[in-house]
Design a protein around this nucleic acid. Structure first.
Length: 877
RNA sequence: GCCGGGGUGGCGAAAUCGGUAGACGCAGCGGACUUAAAAUCCGCGGGGCUUCGGCCCAUGUGGGUUCGAAUCCCACCCCCGGCACCA
């Protein structure tokens, strides 16, 4: 029989593309996403299923996107089948350097390019078969969206959490803009990999570091993927220690006080405060101190010199005349380094003596003050006490410049003065530390801090690695920061009523090295009257970081169609925080941190009533191709359109989920598609001959397998083990088809529902074939009288009921179980036994086995281990 | 260096409150159907030995705990991701 003849008996072949078109249209026209006539506002069982909205590139949707979205969509569809009102929106994160660079390369204006990309993405997204709510989408570049991004900025500004300050920032010479710390990876621009330079420019910062502790504390309880939580913990980088003060042994020149410490760095502020204090107390000026942060205050007796970061503001004032030329040269040299060179850990230590000494507050000894590039201005106080005996870097430095090295921690006091060949970072007891000798180093930390604190020379302190978020970008393609500079009034926020500050269309939007934004070229745009005094003023010409756009988009979705508020209070109460968020881990310290921060701020401003935006977050893995990372240069990029056109979205989706554990990712191999494709074909061929009234009762063995499969698939989807869920369905279908037998309706009808989250189109089609005239997903989500189906429907803990089949735990287990018989832990026989068999009987049956006897005979039975319904282990010797 | 994750057949992977290692699938081999091929269906499939009953070995390496270890403990090796002159 030829395939054609064969087919004519079994019915039409599976034609995925036609079926998928049909159902994608029907889902649209039948409003499958409508929970009720009142839509979002009235949904009784809200479940906010979020995925990370894509950046709409010109290349189109990447498999990585589809992998991420499909995994999230399966979860959403599953929840919907279980009777929840699943809100699953999608949008476009279309501002930012990436889009702008591409536009520049193409010579197409982003205002023209982005709508095209969005249209193409929309087409592709629809084709993947995800159940997006197309009535609630966002596009961050739309003025109706960024108006509210600007509004968020203003809320932070009013709360004192947005501030403009001059500070050393990361400058990418290729992108020609500043970057947030989070956008610098190993000293390089995360976008273009160019080594980042340091520049001092006035920028807008959000005070995220004020929230460091809260951001850290909440990580203890939020339900997030472990690795993502750890990444955030590392990024926040809390360390506990102390701040110690080292008085300078130095008389400041007169100009010290009249100097240019008018900058707004913390150090200058501290000096100003100190001056005031000294004036009040008529104290001696040499009580000026260098403050250091240390996690090892117990080693203070070993601090034999100090090191300041070359940029430290005290440096010019404490530099001796003899050292000035060398110091200036070194500072210039370090200032010219890019971050990759500066932060290199394996280069030889360098540094210069300032000519000034400080007093070690523990030993009262004079110790020299140096500058060196291994001390970083941005961490701690930008100054350290160097303890060469117990810090590798200090040891190296001391060795190179012949500075004294003292051991202050040792295994015991007896070995206190053995020669030191290297820094000894290990724990022990204090030595060469005067009255603290013999105390375990760990205990000494608190004691020494307390002792120094009596003299005002120390206090305990925690320090964070997290820095304020620099949000200014000297680029064109972003929301203008809504601020006006007035000579009279200073910094004036744009009144909320005047939002949005529209991004003007300018043709020459190329960035340049000047540090000045392209918008500064459009005088007609930036010249405005001051909103307060009407004097001539000037708009801020920087735009905000794209990550600000995405730090609040999840709040916008439910209210996407509202033009009077950023997010409606009622809708927000109903739908947020997000119930389930699935996305890539690459955003652990960028998007996911910023979104948490913005939400906390909004909570503090009483604009939302929760402070963690995502109840549950799960990361998904990465897809590689044929064992290697996908890249254009390697030529191994999967173009989703081609695969979907050829095999259908259902096969593509199912394969992506089958190729490996979802949370770990996997290797895309074209051959692999054949597995899921064959599965869907066999499903089709099995269900098609089943007529509406056909079939009879379930055979026992199949009924058992069915119940076990329902349980397994539900458990697996719940834990995102999609690959094993699919394997379980394949196994079940194999059982149903065993020996070429024809299936009956009761066997396949529930299977169609199990398959539906993965392959929704074929499921709909087969569902319809079985005589149901309404969409499976619509039927599951719109609560009316129970649908007439030939299986029990599961009722969720929360009372939700959709179409997901229930299983009977008793029926899911076979009546005859295969027992394993071991002798001394080694497998010697397998035998079927009735479920629930008691130990004595199992033991008797086991000992009756010939092979078991071979290993037991002639030996003494010491013990018999019995695991109900599983095994008997006879211990004999 | 620190923090995560991982190492199981030719390949992707299952199985981790300790209890049949390799489910499911890909590729492969054998068979049915066919003039033939494709498609489809059936069967085989870690390695070694075998008197065909079975036996021995096997989950990165080396130890340990246990009646029993891929799973737990100790030491180590390798791979992937993140952080890193962070004091």
């Amino acid at each position: 029989m030829t395939e054609r003849e064969n087919r004519s008996e079994r019915g039409p072949a599976y034609e995925p593309v036609a079926i998928e078109r049909k159902w994608q249209e029907r889902w649209g026209t039948e409003h499958v996403n409508a929970f009720s006539d009142d839509g979002l506002a009235a949904a009784p069982r809200p479940f906010y299923n979020l995925m990370m909205f894509p950046y709409p590139s010109a290349e189109g949707l990447h498999v990585g996107n589809i992998y991420a979205f499909t995994g999230a969509d399966i979860y959403g569809r599953w929840m919907r089948l279980r009777g929840y009102d699943v809100f699953e929106p999608i949008g476009f994160d279309a501002f930012g350097i990436h889009s702008e660079n591409f536009a520049l390369k193409q010579g197409t204006h982003p205002l023209d390019l982005i709508p095209r990309n969005v249209a193409n993405f929309t087409r592709q997204l629809r084709r993947t078969g995800a159940m997006y709510d197309w009535d609630h989408t966002v596009d961050t570049t739309d003025a109706s969206y960024y108006r509210w991004t600007q509004w968020i900025f203003l809320q932070l500004f009013k709360a004192g959490l947005a501030e403009r300050k001059e500070a050393p920032v990361n400058w990418c010479p290729s992108c020609m803009t500043v970057l947030a710390n989070e956008q610098v990876i190993g000293g390089r621009c995360e976008r273009c990999n160019t080594p980042v330079e340091q520049r001092t420019i006035a920028q807008w910062f959000f005070r995220i570091s004020d929230y460091a502790q809260r951001l850290l504390d909440n990580l203890e309880w939020i339900d997030w993927s472990e690795s993502t939580r750890k990444a955030q913990q590392n990024w926040i980088g809390r360390s506990e220690g102390a701040e110690l003060r080292f008085p300078l042994d130095w008389t400041p020149p007169d100009e010290f006080w009249d100097s240019a410490f008018a900058g707004d760095t913390e150090e200058a502020e501290a000096i100003a405060a100190l001056r005031e204090e000294l004036d009040e107390n008529e104290s001696r000026v040499d009580e000026i101190t260098i403050d250091v942060f240390t996690t090892r205050p117990d080693t203070v007796f070993g601090a034999t010199f100090m090191v300041l970061a070359p940029e430290h503001p005290l440096v010019p004032w404490i530099t001796g005349d003899a050292q000035r030329a060398a110091i200036d040269e070194y500072r210039t040299q370090v200032g010219a380094m890019d971050l990759v060179a500066r932060k290199k850990t394996d280069k030889e230590k360098s540094g210069v003596f300032t000519g000034t000494y400080a007093i070690n507050p523990a030993t009262d000894e004079r110790i020299p003050v140096w500058i060196a590039d291994y001390v970083l201005m941005e961490y701690g106080t930008g100054a350290i006490m160097a303890v060469p005996g117990h810090d590798e870097r200090d040891f190296e430095f001391a060795t190179k410049f012949a500075l004294p090295i003292v051991r202050v921690v040792a295994a015991s006091v007896e070995v206190a003065n053995a020669p030191m060949a290297a820094a000894e970072p290990h724990e022990g007891v204090l030595v060469n530390s005067d009255r603290f000798d013999g105390i375990p180093a760990d205990d000494a930390k608190a004691e020494i801090v307390a002792w120094l604190a009596e003299r005002g020379m120390a206090e305990t302190r925690v320090n964070y690695r997290l820095h304020d978020w620099c949000i200014s970008r000297q680029r064109y393609w972003g929301p203008p920061i809504p601020v006006v500079y007035c000579d009279v009034c200073g910094i004036v926020p744009v009144p909320e009523s005047e939002l949005p500050v529209l991004l003007p269309r300018i043709e020459n939007y190329q960035p340049n090295q000047s540090g000045v934004s392209p918008l500064a070229r459009d005088e007609s745009w930036y010249r405005v009257p001051c909103p307060q005094c009407d004097a001539e003023a000037r708009r801020e010409t920087d735009v905000s970081d794209t990550f600000l756009d995405s730090a609040w988009y999840f709040l916008r979705y439910p209210s996407a169609n509202r033009d009077d508020v950023a997010f409606d209070a009622e809708l927000t109460r109903k739908w947020l925080p997000v119930t389930m968020y699935i996305g890539g881990e690459e955003h652990s310290v960028l998007h996911l941190m910023y979104a948490r921060f913005i939400t906390m701020v909004l909570k503090d401003l009483h604009l939302v009533d929760f402070e963690e935006p995502f109840r549950t977050f799960r990361k998904h893995g990465l897809i590689i191709r044929d064992g290697a990372k996908m890249s254009k240069s390697r030529g191994n990029v999967v173009v989703p359109d081609d695969y979907i056109e050829r095999w259908g979205a259902d096969t593509f989706r199912t394969y992506l989920m089958f190729l490996g554990p979802y949370q770990e990712g996997g290797d895309f191999r074209d051959q692999g598609l054949m597995g899921p494709y064959g599965f869907l074909n066999r499903l089709w061929d099995t269900v098609l001959p089943v007529k509406e009234l056909g079939g009879g009762p379930l055979e026992d063995a199949i009924e058992q397998k069915l119940h076990a499969t329902i349980r397994k698939v539900g458990d697996a989807i719940g834990s995102l083990s999609y690959n094993t869920a699919i394997a379980a369905m394949m196994e079940y279908l194999n059982t149903v088809r065993e020996g070429g037998r024809a299936a009956n309706r009761a066997e396949v009808e529930p299977l169609i529902v199990l398959v539906a989250p993965f392959a929704p189109h074929i499921a709909e089609e087969l569902w319809q074939h079985l005589g149901h005239d309404e969409s499976l997903f619509r039927r599951a989500s719109v609560r009316r009288e129970p649908p007439s189906v030939g299986f029990e429907i599961a009722i969720d803990d929360g009372g939700a009921r959709g179409l997901w089949p229930a299983y009977d735990a008793d029926k899911a287990t076979a009546d005859i179980v295969e027992f394993v018989v071991q002798v001394n832990g080694k497998l010697r026989a397998r035998m079927p036994m009735p479920r629930g068999i008691v130990e004595a009987e199992a033991r008797e049956a086991a000992l009756a086995d010939e092979n078991v006897r071979r290993f037991v005979d002639g030996k003494q039975i010491r013990k018999v281990v019995f695991v109900p319904d599983k095994l008997v282990n006879i211990v004999a010797s």
